[in-house]
Amino acid sequence: MNLGDRVLYKGCQGADVEQLQKLLAKLGYDIIISEYFGDRTEKAVIKFQNDNELKPDGRVSGITLLKIKLKS
Rank of each mutant, 00 (worst) to 15 (best):
M1A: 11
M1G: 13
N2Q: 07
N2Y: 09
N2A: 04
N2L: 06
N2I: 05
N2M: 02
L3V: 12
G4S: 03
G4N: 04
G4P: 09
D5N: 15
D5W: 03
R6F: 03
R6M: 07
R6W: 00
R6H: 02
V7D: 14
V7Q: 14
L8A: 10
L8P: 01
L8Q: 02
Y9C: 05
K10P: 01
G11S: 10
C12A: 15
Q13W: 06
Q13H: 12
Q13F: 13
G14M: 02
G14F: 11
G14A: 08
A15Y: 07
D16A: 04
D16W: 09
D16K: 01
V17C: 09
V17R: 10
V17L: 11
V17G: 08
Q19L: 02
Q19W: 01
L20P: 04
L20R: 08
L20A: 05
L20Q: 00
Q21R: 10
Q21L: 01
Q21C: 07
Q21M: 04
Q21Y: 02
Q21A: 03
L23Y: 15
L23M: 14
L24D: 01
L24H: 10
L24K: 10
A25C: 04
A25T: 04
A25D: 13
K26Q: 11
K26D: 11
L27V: 05
L27D: 06
L27G: 04
L27M: 13
L27P: 05
G28M: 08
G28D: 05
G28I: 12
Y29M: 07
D30N: 15
I31A: 07
I31Q: 09
I32M: 02
I32P: 00
I33H: 06
I33P: 07
E35W: 05
Y36N: 11
Y36V: 12
F37Y: 15
F37I: 01
G38Q: 00
D39M: 13
R40Y: 14
R40D: 15
T41L: 03
E42C: 07
E42G: 03
E42A: 09
K43C: 03
A44E: 04
A44V: 06
A44K: 13
V45Q: 10
V45E: 09
V45W: 14
V45T: 12
I46R: 14
K47E: 05
K47R: 14
K47A: 02
K47I: 00
F48R: 00
Q49F: 12
Q49M: 08
Q49K: 05
N50A: 06
N50R: 15
N50L: 11
N50S: 13
D51R: 08
N52Q: 12
N52C: 10
N52R: 10
N52K: 08
E53R: 15
L54V: 08
L54R: 07
K55H: 07
D57T: 03
D57G: 05
D57Y: 01
G58V: 08
R59G: 09
R59V: 13
G62A: 01
G62W: 04
I63D: 10
I63V: 14
I63Y: 02
T64V: 09
T64K: 03
T64F: 05
L65S: 08
L66K: 14
L66V: 12
L66S: 14
L66Y: 15
K67Y: 12
K67V: 05
K67S: 03
K67I: 08
K67Q: 11
K67C: 00
I68V: 13
I68D: 09
I68P: 01
K69V: 15
K69G: 07
K69C: 14
L70P: 00
L70H: 10
L70V: 09
K71P: 08
K71L: 15
S72Y: 06
